[in-house]
Amino acid sequence: MPVGSISSSSDTVGVAVVNYRVPVLESKEEVLDNCHRIADFVEGTKMGYPGLDLIVFPEYSTQGFHPTKWRELCTTVPGPETDIFCEACRKNKVWGVFSITGEINPNGNPFNCFILIDDQGKIKLNFHKINPWVPKEPWYPGDQTMVVKGPKGLMIGANVCYDSNIPEIVRDTVMKGAELVVRIQGYMYPSKEQQIKVASVRAWENNVYFAVANMAGRDKLYYYFGHSNIIDFDGTTLAECGSAPDEVTYAELSISAIRRARRNWTAENHLYNLTHRGYSAVKDGVATSPYSFYKIWSEDPEKAKQICESLTRDTPEQPSEEQATGHLLNK
């Protein structure tokens, strides 16, 4: 893919990811002030990168993650925060990905949301984080992966932070048609090396573009390492920020290149090969799933849970060292 460019074309989608400075906010008024700052980022980035089609902001970039006031800062979707983002996208003719943590949920704890807004200022997707980062995150887990048609027809799938550590979530997103998986995250040290590598691995094993926006700087709890990046569908890095707050980087993603690769690659075509096992030996390959755990999980979730607990522990509470050692010895 082209690197070092600030342009795009009819065949390429210009994507920017932002190392947004982690906000420390105490009131809804401060949240809305921060939303206007994000809107200014949209405008400035579009001016600096005229090829920009999609800009991505990290998880927690809107409301932050206040250790005691997080519930007070929750909102609705649509709401006053997304209204500001919608106007910024409409005004600057760009698509944008934004974070809402959290969206009020009448049936339980709030949701952690990935919001995709188009260049007309319309909300096109509201994805709820499937695997909240336990034990610290209080968000109610979402129950489905989501993919929509994005700028210039590129298919965009949503992940939020810890979601991308679960290979099944990314694979399901890709199997719904995603050509670009966007991961918004609020990841802190000491997980820097692992999370940078995860983006490349998920891109390679799913033949998919990956765009990651991470926060940078310190809030009341953590120091976030930044390193927002854009990964090619072969797992190589197209662009990457450092660790400084408010860095922005940019890359072009070719639509025809990924579609051509998915159609023509052989040994590297991990999506085709998944359901055409051994086609060099068996005509058209074998489509039947060989993975017994996934069959069990689909048919009997409680049994699947028991299998996991037999390998780990049988309670959300972390056992004492004595209990853990005894549990392992008694297996």
Score class of each variant (00 low, 15 high):
residue 1 M to D: 10
residue 3 V to P: 00
residue 4 G to C: 10
residue 5 S to L: 10
residue 6 I to L: 07
residue 9 S to F: 15
residue 11 D to I: 07
residue 12 T to A: 10
residue 13 V to W: 14
residue 13 V to T: 09
residue 17 V to C: 06
residue 17 V to Q: 03
residue 18 V to K: 06
residue 20 Y to P: 07
residue 22 V to W: 00
residue 23 P to E: 05
residue 24 V to L: 04
residue 25 L to C: 10
residue 28 K to I: 03
residue 30 E to N: 00
residue 31 V to A: 02
residue 31 V to M: 02
residue 36 H to V: 11
residue 37 R to T: 11
residue 39 A to P: 12
residue 40 D to L: 13
residue 43 E to S: 15
residue 44 G to S: 09
residue 47 M to C: 02
residue 52 L to S: 06
residue 53 D to S: 08
residue 53 D to I: 06
residue 53 D to N: 14
residue 61 S to V: 06
residue 63 Q to S: 12
residue 66 H to T: 09
residue 66 H to L: 04
residue 67 P to F: 03
residue 68 T to L: 07
residue 69 K to W: 00
residue 74 C to G: 14
residue 74 C to V: 08
residue 76 T to R: 05
residue 80 P to S: 11
residue 81 E to G: 00
residue 85 F to I: 02
residue 87 E to D: 15
residue 88 A to G: 05
residue 89 C to L: 04
residue 98 F to T: 03
residue 99 S to A: 13
residue 105 N to A: 03
residue 105 N to E: 04
residue 106 P to A: 12
residue 106 P to R: 07
residue 108 G to M: 10
residue 109 N to P: 01
residue 111 F to V: 04
residue 112 N to Q: 09
residue 114 F to N: 05
residue 118 D to E: 05
residue 122 K to L: 12
residue 129 K to I: 04
residue 129 K to R: 10
residue 130 I to W: 01
residue 133 W to P: 00
residue 134 V to E: 09
residue 135 P to C: 03
residue 136 K to L: 14
residue 137 E to M: 13
residue 138 P to V: 08
residue 141 P to S: 09
residue 143 D to Y: 12
residue 148 V to W: 01
residue 150 G to R: 02
residue 150 G to L: 12
residue 155 M to R: 12
residue 156 I to W: 06
residue 156 I to V: 15
residue 160 V to K: 04
residue 164 S to M: 14
residue 166 I to Y: 13
residue 166 I to G: 00
residue 168 E to W: 13
residue 170 V to D: 09
residue 175 M to Y: 07
residue 178 A to T: 11
residue 183 R to Q: 08
residue 183 R to Y: 00
residue 185 Q to S: 14
residue 186 G to V: 02
residue 187 Y to V: 09
residue 193 E to G: 06
residue 197 K to S: 11
residue 199 A to S: 14
residue 202 R to W: 01
residue 205 E to W: 07
residue 214 N to M: 07
residue 219 D to V: 03
residue 227 H to M: 03
residue 228 S to D: 02
residue 228 S to M: 08
residue 230 I to C: 06
residue 232 D to R: 08
residue 233 F to G: 05
residue 233 F to D: 14
residue 239 A to I: 01
residue 241 C to Q: 03
residue 241 C to I: 09
residue 252 E to P: 08
residue 256 S to M: 09
residue 259 R to I: 02
residue 262 R to F: 00
residue 264 N to E: 15
residue 267 A to W: 01
residue 275 T to K: 02
residue 276 H to P: 12
residue 279 Y to P: 08
residue 279 Y to K: 12
residue 279 Y to E: 12
residue 280 S to V: 01
residue 280 S to E: 11
residue 281 A to H: 07
residue 283 K to R: 10
residue 283 K to W: 14
residue 285 G to C: 12
residue 285 G to P: 09
residue 287 A to K: 01
residue 288 T to V: 12
residue 294 Y to K: 10
residue 296 I to F: 00
residue 297 W to A: 13
residue 297 W to V: 03
residue 297 W to K: 12
residue 300 D to E: 04
residue 313 R to F: 05
residue 315 T to G: 12
residue 318 Q to A: 13
residue 318 Q to W: 05
residue 322 E to H: 13
residue 323 Q to K: 15
residue 324 A to F: 15
residue 326 G to M: 07
residue 330 N to L: 14
residue 331 K to P: 00
residue 331 K to Y: 03
